[in-house]
Write a protein that binds this DNA or RNA. Structure first.
Lengths: 343, 343
DNA sequence: ACGGGATGCTAAAGCGTTTTAACAGATGTG
DNA sequence: CACATCTGTTAAAACGCTTTAGCATCCCGT
């Protein structure tokens, strides 16, 4: 910068003024021009480090994730956060602490030392999370998790709305005997989606039948193993806890010569691209809004979007309609294959 | 820091010396203790920004990716890079430019302005890439892509070794009539894997039969659509360009009542967890070492691991054995289902 | 008792910016 | 023509730290 100043025959103060294009700076057109020329000639780049030092704060936002690795989802949270941060002139500092307490401490320290504007603390599946104490020193917002004490702002998926949406996908095609394959353990997803399921049923005037509620491991084998019991209840539609369960279900159904959606309409959850979009038939599902979660996280952090009174913002889980749901046929009992195709 | 100095009754210089634990600094035990106490009492944290300013460089490594979004893979590259960077005391600055030229320019500028130690430029699939000019101002290493001019260090997957490995997986179970379902367009993956396939065949003394080489869209539908032609050639094993093609193949085979691996042994490529691990039967495949690519990228950048003469390091693609490959049975023609199961 | 080497600590410069107060010169005003 | 105002520019302090040269002390050997 000093060099630029010399080359342009002005002071560094002037250079700073023109570089930052200060609105109330009175700089002559010619001087301004000379500075620009000098900058170009010398290939000058401002030093962001110094800039931050003097301004007292940085344009960094920290993102700590508990398992960027384990799941394709984490990538979307990062992506959403990164896009949104970028939009506001911020840069993401990411740290991924694979459940390692010490790594977590270090990561947080390093972020604090870099004077981050704030940090996003995210988990790869929706759950309660304890906010590490040092984080209290800065602004924090929880992403895809929440503090049971409710004392920290959080951005989470709207599980009950998602459950409702999934169920409505079936209801609106005339299905009345709708099963749900839930997970085995309580969690925001387990409880919320079940609640949404019941709400949708009630709103549609369909009685809730506990016999139609199944619990299974939330993966392919879980979906595969539950088929027998499921079929025994004669549903015409089923809402699976996630796409992988649906994938297992597809296999089980296929082995029995049953076809989707004719014999059984199935709705998944998560919208895990690789699976959902490419199953045969493509799976109708409800998306977990990971990208939005990340983006909303930085908005809340930056105060662009503000959280309601309780500091908890729920992001909608939108329906993704593909081809695994068709109109309800006949009723009860194990349905048989009938014509009527949907594209 | 000044406050700490006052509280401890020493100068800031002393505090600095203590904090950084300088080896050749002569500080009395008592003064050292007082400084530590003061630090604890005041909850002091060094300001990394200032530290970087004075040291002239930062502990940042930039990572620019072309599509963190599009694929679960990118996440692994980030993860590997982040872990390795962390290990060496570096922090990742990530920017994701969805093919947007301007975003790319800005991202690079911002990294340069932050005095990054260097940058990793990565693509989500293995291909040739042009290095943006401004990047020449710093250290760059290409990850999962390469500069055709060969003037920039690059870390890429070992496609031909991968192709060889995949083929050997089949060969070693006695298969001799092995088909390959490749992509339709030339690319490092297309060419390299085919070459590996031929090398493996040759090494095993099996004649190369062009009729066994198929080209298909590299996704489920591609795999599904090619089944007919494939079966017409009566292979006992097939090497698919990727796991999604294998997934489509599974569907086509199942519809024809054929079973895997008894009627046809199949090997995938990529090791896309969600698919490979959960297909029925679980898919034997060859992994694309994304995590390693990211990690090796920072190692090369930091000079911890040095690239060979041509500046190109190839990372091995390891076999991931699951259950879709069994011993070869009978020979030629469309095989019929036979007992012999593998778990 | 005295010079010399350790030992313990500090003053001050410097890193690359931003920002504020102030100055010199030009221009307008009464 | 003297004064107030603008206009264009700059000097200098500040941001929080590192680092080097140097200043006192103190201890030791003689």
């Amino acid at each position: 910068m000093r060099e630029v100043a010399e080359a342009a025959g002005v002071s560094v103060a002037t250079v700073s003024l023109v570089v930052n294009n200060k609105p109330d700076a009175r700089i002559g057109a010619d001087a301004r021009q000379r500075v620009h020329d000098a900058i170009r000639a010398l290939g000058y780049r401002p030093n962001a480090l110094a800039k931050n030092l003097v301004s007292g704060g940085s344009r960094f936002i920290g993102l700590v994730t508990d398992a960027i690795a384990t799941t394709p989802f984490a990538g979307q949270i990062i992506h959403g956060a990164q896009d949104e941060a970028w939009k506001h002139g911020y840069i993401l500092l990411i740290a991924n602490i694979e459940g390692n307490e010490e790594a977590e401490r270090e990561a947080i320290s390093m972020m604090l030392e870099h004077q981050v504007r704030g940090v996003l603390y995210s988990t790869w599946y929706h759950r309660a999370a304890a906010v590490p104490a040092p984080l209290r020193e800065t602004d924090v917002v929880l992403v895809n998790c929440y503090s049971p004490a409710g004392d920290v702002r959080a951005v989470v998926p709207a599980e009950v709305q998602g459950g409702r949406t999934a169920t409505e996908l079936l209801l609106r095609e005339g299905h009345r005997r709708i099963a749900i394959i839930n997970t085995t353990t309580p969690s925001p997803a387990h409880d919320g989606r079940l609640r949404g399921y019941r709400e949708a049923l009630e709103a549609a005037g369909v009685a809730y039948d506990p016999a139609l509620v199944f619990n299974a491991q939330p993966d392919q084998s879980g979906g595969y193993d539950v088929v027998e019991h499921l079929l025994a209840q004669g549903p015409t539609g089923v809402f699976c806890h996630n796409d992988r369960v649906a994938m297992g279900l597809y296999d089980g159904l296929r082995e029995r010569g049953l076809s989707i959606p004719e014999d059984l309409a199935v709705v998944g959850f998560d919208n895990q691209e690789v699976i959902a979009a490419h199953l045969r038939p493509p799976l109708t599902t409800v998306a977990l809004p990971h990208y939005e979660l990340g983006a909303a996280g930085v908005r809340v952090l930056l105060g662009v979007e503000d959280a309601p009174g309780d500091g908890r913002v729920e992001v909608a889980c939108p329906a993704v309609v593909r081809s695994s749901v068709g109109p309800a046929q006949g009723k009860g009992a194990v349905p048989r294959a009938v014509g009527l195709r949907r594209s």
